[in-house]
Nucleic acid binder design. Structure first.
Length: 732
DNA sequence: AATATCTTGCAGTCG
DNA sequence: GCAAGATATT
């Protein structure tokens, strides 16, 4: 047997992990150290050398995309498709188990998954029905509470109210919500994990079966596991399982959504015979970039000691640009990208990173002006669009008449004369008689509703039944198409403004295509293609921007860039308050997570890294002055080169626009090159007069000769940047 | 039921 | 400053 393709591409540390004996293994893998490679090669090693059947291996990734990629890489390495290997996300795997063992899990066979929007809508409706005080009962907060409990593995009966009235109410609400879900056959995301965990706890023989089957448990992005995920894994591993987990404590950036990096330490306690391997050799970035990344992350107090290094060159210095505002920042970035492209490089080798989504706008405008194609990550995903969810609600109702949220969603879409009053009556009747909405509607349409409403409801019920009958024996995509047409959703959306209508109808057509192309590889026996498709739609809600996959400049947040790499990277908006974000700046934990985010961003760059900040930024409609991010100061000076330095000066305190605490001084800034004396007879702090704007004070000054620009704070007109050669300023 | 007007809040994200 | 959601208006 030839193991060279599995072993040869690995360094010593990677090889140690890949070829390890049957021990629990914790791999601490720095950014760009080949962590996915280790996982993939480990699986290949198990199969090829240790003779483990893929049937006995379970691999967990954090996103569907990562899972799909992992499978492809494994199959490529092994040279054949591997069908009986379980690779997926925690949610995907939990779902698979629940489909398989729906009876043991106490679920109806036709259970459906509730996404977070569905969950929110349901809770909102519950709040309204219960007529709770809407200032204290905020659906978002209730949602957060319920999900948090579930993520911690808690059912309502497990939670103590600590004698707190409010908390007792919340727990009661959780119970109520759970009852509705049970009755409607619905399972939310957190519930998938919780049920899967309970499946182990309540059915020891089932657990035993899976323990015997999955001896090898591999987990990627281990630092991102939450409590219930870890518990599920822990129970499955038992005494005999061999977990192999890979993660990077320095890249833990999702604490706010329940991820606990502490699981890395817990792992070592729970599996005392675990071996720990550190991967520190980086294959991605230049020496300079790695030095900067190391320097930044060293400021965190709680971390495992780890230092990235490369066998490669130091490469270019990191460039820092101090823009005078966010538009200047964007123009600078776009100019650099154009330069990059002129140099014969690709647009998709460049990434513009920012802390929050709102920052993308200025870059988009600049890119549009420059005629550069770009792609913004994030935003609404395909299966989350309103028109798609409407169509899916019809499909779900056909699968499961008890699905109350779907019933409510489409009972009057398109409008068919079933208004709020009628729906309320149905809901009330359902509640009073402990019936599903569907049954309640059937009863009431028999006569207890006013004639017109009764007819409308009757027509709706008939429609669903007819559609169900019509589509029983046809192909999946034909079913979808038929239902979209006959429900008259297309006609409904056609009434909207032209542009919107077109996009919506296109999306509905796209849904039919999605159904046509759908292959239910992982569908469980007894699951109809439609049920599999619906589950797929919720669990894998698709890319936000399916189109525009070709050569585009990549725009995304620092969070969504994790796992990616680009030759040319811009980390923008490097200002205190923006990054680190204001809301994380004041506590140590928050700041450390921001710093890890900075570490993630820095380590995405392969050869060139630009940091940009603006001294003035328009936020929420007002211009604000800002200090450069403290993270810039954490990078050793000799690694940074300032591009086109601008001049710093104390702001005048007397002006209405300036506020205490916003005074900028050159002395605190790094690196050097700031604070040169001004030319052209203009002095910083100089009082000047402008023909149109009147009197003002020179705040800042940038450039030389004909291109020189000056920033003046006018008494009445506010702060302006003026080109010296046009402004005709008079010295006072 | 569709449309106009007002209020609110404003990090990040995957399943 | 803007967009989404809630509420008022016809």
């Amino acid at each position: 047997m030839d193991v060279t393709p599995i072993i040869d591409p690995l360094n010593d540390a990677q090889r140690e992990a890949v070829t390890a004996a049957d021990n629990p293994m914790l791999v601490i893998a720095g950014a760009g150290s080949g962590k996915t490679r280790v996982l993939v090669h480990r699986i290949a090693w198990l199969v090829e050398v240790d003779g483990v059947s893929p049937h006995g291996i379970l691999a967990v990734a954090f996103t569907n995309k990562a899972a799909a990629e992992m499978r492809i890489r494994i199959e490529k390495l092994l040279g054949e498709p591997i069908n009986n290997l379980w690779v997926g996300t925690f949610h995907g795997l939990a779902h698979r188990l629940l489909r398989r063992h729906w009876q043991e899990a106490g679920l109806p066979q036709s259970f459906q998954i509730l996404d977070s929007e569905d969950q929110h809508r349901l809770l909102k409706r519950m709040c309204k029905n219960l007529e709770l005080d809407e200032t204290t009962w905020i659906p978002r907060e209730i949602q957060y509470f319920i999900n948090k409990q579930k993520d911690d593995g808690l059912r309502p009966e497990h939670i103590a109210d600590h004698g707190d009235q409010n908390r007792r109410q919340l727990i009661h609400f959780y119970k109520l919500y759970q009852d509705i879900c049970e009755q409607s056959g619905l399972v939310d995301f957190a519930e998938l994990l919780l049920r899967a965990h309970e499946l182990w706890l309540h059915h020891p023989n089932l657990l035993e079966r899976y323990r015997r089957r999955f001896r090898h448990l591999l987990v990627d992005e281990f630092q991102d596991t939450n409590a219930i995920q870890y518990a599920w894994l822990r129970v499955l591993a038992g005494e005999t399982g061999i977990p192999f987990v890979v993660g990077d404590d320095d890249q833990s950036i999702y604490r706010w959504r329940g991820a606990r990096v502490e699981h890395i330490y817990k792992f070592q306690k729970d599996f005392p015979n675990a071996r720990v391997v550190k991967l520190e050799q980086n294959y991605r970035s230049t020496g300079t970039i790695l030095k900067a990344a190391n320097a930044i992350i060293e400021n965190n107090s709680t971390r495992m000691d780890k230092k990235l290094w490369t066998g490669g060159n130091d490469g270019d210095l990191i460039k820092l640009y101090n823009a005078y505002n966010e538009r200047d920042e964007a123009d600078f970035v776009i100019a650099r990208i154009q330069e990059w492209i002129r140099g014969g490089n690709r647009r998709d080798e460049t990434a513009v990173l920012y802390r929050s989504n709102a920052q993308s706008r200025v870059f988009e405008e600049s890119l549009l002006r420059a005629n550069l194609p770009y792609r913004v990550y994030g935003g609404q995903r395909f299966f989350e669009r309103a028109e798609i969810k409407d169509a899916l609600a019809y499909l779900r109702l056909i699968e499961n008449r008890n699905d109350a949220p779907s019933f409510e969603r489409v009972v009057n879409v398109p409008t068919r004369g079933i208004g709020a009053t009628t729906v309320n009556t149905i809901r009330e009747y359902a509640r009073a008689n402990a019936l599903p909405m569907w049954e309640a509607a059937r009863s009431l349409a028999g006569g207890q509703l006013p004639g017109r409403a009764a007819n409308a409801v009757q027509a709706f019920l008939m429609l669903i039944e007819t559609l169900a009958g019509d589509t029983r024996d046809i192909e999946l995509h034909e079913q979808v198409d038929h239902i979209i047409q006959r429900s008259r959703l297309t006609d409904h959306y056609r009434k909207e403004p032209r542009e919107k209508a077109e996009a919506r109808i296109e999306n509905l057509e796209e849904l039919v295509s999605a159904a046509r192309g759908f292959e239910d590889d992982e569908a469980e026996e007894g699951m109809s293609p439609m049920a599999a498709f619906l589950a797929h739609a919720v669990l894998e809600s698709g890319d936000a921007q399916g189109d525009e996959w070709d050569d585009c400049v990549q725009l995304m947040t620092l969070h969504s860039v994790k796992g990616l790499e680009f030759p040319l990277v811009f980390m923008t908006g490097m200002e205190d308050g923006l990054f680190p974000h204001q809301r994380s700046m004041n506590d140590a934990d928050g700041l450390e997570e921001e710093r890890r985010l900075c570490y993630v961003g820095t380590t995405r760059a392969m050869s060139e890294l630009y940091l940009t900040c603006a001294e003035q930024r328009r936020m929420y409609g007002v211009d604000k002055f800002a200090h450069p991010s403290r993270f810039i100061r954490e990078i050793p000076e000799d690694l940074i080169e300032e591009v086109r330095p601008s001049i710093r000066v104390s702001r005048p305190v007397s002006h209405a626009r300036s506020r205490p605490g916003q005074t900028l001084t050159g002395s605190t800034r790094k690196p050097g090159g700031l604070g040169k004396a001004a030319e052209n007879g203009i002095q910083l702090g100089q009082h000047v007069c402008h023909g149109k704007f009147g009197e003002g004070v020179v705040l800042n000054y940038e450039g030389t000769g004909a291109h020189a620009r000056v920033q003046v704070n006018f008494a009445t007109a506010g702060t302006k940047w003026l080109v010296m050669s046009y402004a005709k300023l008079e010295l006072m």
